[in-house]
Design a protein around this nucleic acid. Structure first.
Length: 331
DNA sequence: GCGACAG
DNA sequence: ATCTTGTCGC
């Protein structure tokens, strides 16, 4: 049960790009993201170059904001960044740079994120959004909690639909190499989730349906982590998210347990659900091997006083508790 | 100032 | 997701 995708080493790709910025020139966070293949990586670029270990080895002072402002620097003082730039002959006036004079964006890059978004669109052809032959009797919830930015615990909770009770659970701890970039979540969390489901399958505890923390088809390219996991592991999945990633929904005066469609133009992407009184909405979308109506109905049937349905609630708790245990044991 | 993005 | 004090509300 392997994902037939080579996940690129994105930190290495970004390092290679930063190393290309010539002395006496500057680029922007957004230009680097574009060279990686997606504008949505801009904020990750910003946080990456704030890491002192990265900054020590690369000319991160040559990266500024799109408006020409210097932006943040790893030393905590933009004046250091200013001095570095001036020592290379770049003129800085009132903490600003005339970008047109010094701008560099002639990067040599394979644009790895562009390849990944093309892959997401390609996977769309494999999606099955049809009604399952039988009502699911068991639903598994999966979720990740992070020990560090590069190490996480995956939790699995098997729930009985009829009673909403926990039948079985397990956790798995492993390294995470890919960063969080909006709309590319699956490449960060899928490897660990696939490992987790391998473990579940070996223990003969696979459910009829898996609830994934994140979106299914409610995704910019209709290929969120729940859909990706469904295809990669060949299981039925539903995406359950706590924030809206894309689309629009009318949220006025929603009643307890009411659901409304999340739409993008004429297209329905999923449902917003008021799962609990005086609580923020949750967002439900089919992942794979299920239709919109069944995804919503099963989610509603698994609500039990928490904002999230029981499988997701338990998976979240299990992985979180395990992180606390590990962190406590280390100190 | 507005828009602004799952985990 | 995670960092984190006090605070508001059921």
């Amino acid at each position: 049960m392997e994902i037939d995708v080579e996940i690129p080493d994105l930190p290495a790709a970004l390092r290679a790009l930063i190393a290309q910025i010539p002395p006496g020139r500057v680029t922007t966070y957004g230009a680097l993201a574009a060279a990686l293949g997606s504008d949505s990586a801009t904020r990750w670029v910003g946080s990456f170059v704030l890491d002192p270990l990265v900054a020590a080895a690369l000319p991160v002072h040559r990266i500024v904001r799109a408006a020409g402002e210097l932006g943040l620097y790893y030393t905590g003082d933009a004046a250091d960044k200013c001095l570095q730039l001036q020592s290379e002959g770049i003129e800085v006036e009132k903490d600003r740079i005339e970008l047109s004079r010094w701008f560099f964006d002639d990067f040599q890059s394979s644009q790895p994120l562009r390849t990944l978004s093309a892959l997401q669109e390609e996977y769309t052809k494999r999606l099955q959004l049809t009604r399952p032959a039988a009502r699911p009797q068991t639903v598994g919830g999966v979720d990740l909690s992070y020990i560090t930015d590069e190490k996480a615990v995956a939790g699995y909770a098997l729930i009985d639909v009829a009673t909403r009770k926990l039948l079985w659970s397990t956790t798995l701890t492993a390294a995470v190499a890919f960063p969080y970039i909006p709309t590319f979540l699956s490449f960060r969390e899928l490897p660990l989730l696939l490992q987790l489901l391998d473990q579940v399958r070996r223990e003969d505890r696979m459910p009829d349906l898996v609830f994934v923390d994140g979106n299914g088809v409610m995704h910019n390219r209709r290929m969120g982590i729940a859909s990706m996991l469904g295809i990669a592991a060949d299981v039925a999945t539903v995406g359950i998210s706590k924030k809206l990633l894309c689309g629009h929904v009318e949220t006025d005066d929603m009643a307890h347990r009411e659901a409304r469609p999340v739409v993008d133009g004429e297209e329905v992407l999923g449902m917003a659900l008021k799962s609990r009184n005086s609580s923020k909405l949750i967002y439900v979308s089919p992942g794979h091997r299920i239709d919109f109506a069944t995804a919503l109905e099963v989610t509603q049937s698994l609500l039990a006083g928490h904002r999230l349905p029981e499988p997701t609630h338990w998976a979240d708790k299990l992985s979180r508790d395990e992180v606390r245990r590990i962190s406590a044991a280390q100190s």
